[in-house]
């Protein structure tokens, strides 16, 4: 089974103090100087994929893991660490564009990559990330691919019959589905004990594989964004 996990390296916004929250004329906040981390929802997605692959290896099922990010070269170290953790492919789509409020453009790039690779069974993505708080990327990726989507996923296991068992939270309780891939899985709940943080890293000899700029075809596929941000106000001391 071929699994693609999409992730994003984000600023740890809790590190910003009150006076750092200055919104510039382009509705942005300067975050380049603070510590970066894997978006916690994406970290859970990366973790779930590792948990899926490790027992599969023991029972003789081959699970190939790929990690994909759309970022500038600042994400390279994370890609390298993911290679050391067991991701066979670590791919970066080169971009220095401001995509925090452009989930549709991100989904288009992810979908173009999936179509180009044409061999993924599962796509696992965090439900949302901190800056844009859009909560749209996995849903739009599923729509663009015309694949089903399961949200609020908390566990993924291999099923003996070659299917995948997916556990997720729903408004009516916990839903367990045995599914036939392909499918997009959105992870919306943090998992305790993220493996990425605790598993000792082996030095990766293999360089991460980087993809370069999105092709002209992908650019053509871009649609006009369906919304734009007008202004931002501070919520600090709102009570």
């Amino acid at each position: 089974m071929n699994v693609l996990v999409c992730f994003k390296v984000v600023p740890d916004l809790d590190q910003l103090s009150g006076s750092d929250w200055v919104v510039d004329g382009c509705s942005r906040v300067e975050t380049r100087f603070i510590k970066k981390m894997i978006n916690p929802y994406d970290e859970s997605a990366l973790e779930l994929a590792l948990k899926l692959a490790n027992p599969a290896k023991v029972s003789g099922i081959t699970t190939n893991l790929s990690a994909l990010t759309i970022a500038d070269s600042g994400a390279n170290l994370t890609l390298k660490n993911l290679r050391a953790l067991g991701y066979q492919q670590a791919v970066r789509i080169e971009s220095d564009a401001e995509l925090d409020f452009a989930p549709q453009e991100i989904a288009i790039l992810i979908a173009a990559y999936i179509r180009n690779a044409n061999d993924f069974d599962l796509i696992i993505i965090g439900q949302q990330s901190g800056v844009g708080d859009n909560a749209k990327t996995p849903l739009l990726t599923a729509e663009l691919m015309q694949w089903p989507c399961i949200t609020q996923v908390t566990a993924i296991e291999n099923d003996p019959a070659g299917n995948v068992k997916v556990t997720s939270l729903a408004d009516e309780g916990t839903v367990t589905r045995v599914i036939k891939p392909p499918c997009v899985l959105a992870v919306g709940t943090p998992l305790p004990f993220p493996l990425c943080a605790y598993q000792p890293l082996k030095r990766s000899r293999n360089r991460p594989q980087y993809r370069l700029k999105p092709s002209a075809a992908q650019k053509l596929e871009k649609q006009h964004p369906t919304y734009r941000i007008l202004r931002m106000l501070s919520c600090l001391n709102s009570k």
Binding site: L13, D14, L16, W21, V23, S27, V29, F101, G130, V131, G132, D133, H224, P225, T226, Y227, R228, I229, L230, R231, M232, L233, S234, C235, L236
Partner: peptide
């Protein structure tokens, strides 16, 4: 809606 982990509130104009 809340953006930047809820530290800020963004105003959005929807177009379609």
């Amino acid at each position: 809606k809340g953006v930047y982990n809820g530290y800020l509130q963004g105003t959005f104009k929807l177009s379609k």
